[in-house]
Design a protein around this nucleic acid. Sequence first.
DNA 1: AACGCGACCAACCGCCTTGTG
DNA 2: TCACAAGGCGGTTGGTCGCGT
Length: 302
Amino acid sequence: MGRAPCCAKVGLKKGKWTAEEDEKLVSYIKANGEGSWRSMPINAGLLRCGKSCRLRWINYLKDDLKRGNISPEEEEIIGRLQASLGNRWSLIATHLVGRTDNEIKNHWNSHLSRKLQLQRCPEIPLPVKKKRGRKPKSVIVGANDGRGKTPSRVRKLKQTSGDNKNADSVDGEKKKKNTTDTITGDGNNPVIAPVECNGAPSSGLTSENNGSSGGEFDMGELENMLLLDNFEEMTWNVDNVNYNRIWENIIDDSFFQPLVEITMNDNNDGEDEYRNLDRWFDPEFYTADSKWIDPEFYTTDG
DNA sequence: AACGCGACCAACCGCCTTGTG
DNA sequence: TCACAAGGCGGTTGGTCGCGT
């Protein structure tokens, strides 16, 4: 039993907004600014609940919204961010100027998720539907359309931190109904559980076992990665230990997904440790000394 | 022309998070 | 520390549109 819905009050209008209502809302916000959503409808002379006003403003009436079809470039960004961040639409929306979380979410649910699954797992048959009805605005393409780049490697890395608690969970169980959230981990360091897909190209970084050690580390593959434009190296020193981290640049120069951390053990057995950074990463809160969540370790000996 | 069906998307619902006293 | 209110978020619903039969 949750809180009673805010729109349960008798007499409040629901459903489509009229042009007159839009006008009232816009003129009120332009005169008084955003905020105080609960009292706003009364002050603005609207028979709507505050939440409804907020949603209408954010998703439809704001000046800086970009209307129209989502471009292939935007789809590329959405796909990569969704792979990295999960269904955190509001966070994803901050990387797309003029797009709202609702718009991105709708676009994802309506055809991007299907499109990307075709690209990543073409061998998995999608539910066959009789092809009828309206053609989609943006044509759904198959795996070989030339636009689908290698999916974020993070998705292919094995998730091993099974006892991490989801920040959204209560008593170990998610309260929301029908949730398909793939993010695990604690509130500060949630981790995206990978999508298993036999058709995904091998990165050489994926361990076949769930143990904390062992597994093959393909140095050749790592070197090949470093030749790509979207991978970069970063090194630093903490307590006389050199760290060398490989980053995957998944969006632009300001958004990197850490992929592999290499700890240089120059002073003991000469083995370097390769740590699979199979963890979710929020660039807004990331610092170099962030705690890892149950990472996998790899050694040069394999 | 009428109907059925799928695509689209605005809006709703319910839970979580944050702010405040 | 706790309770409450308000804001925010993500999942879902349902109305509308347009194409195929």
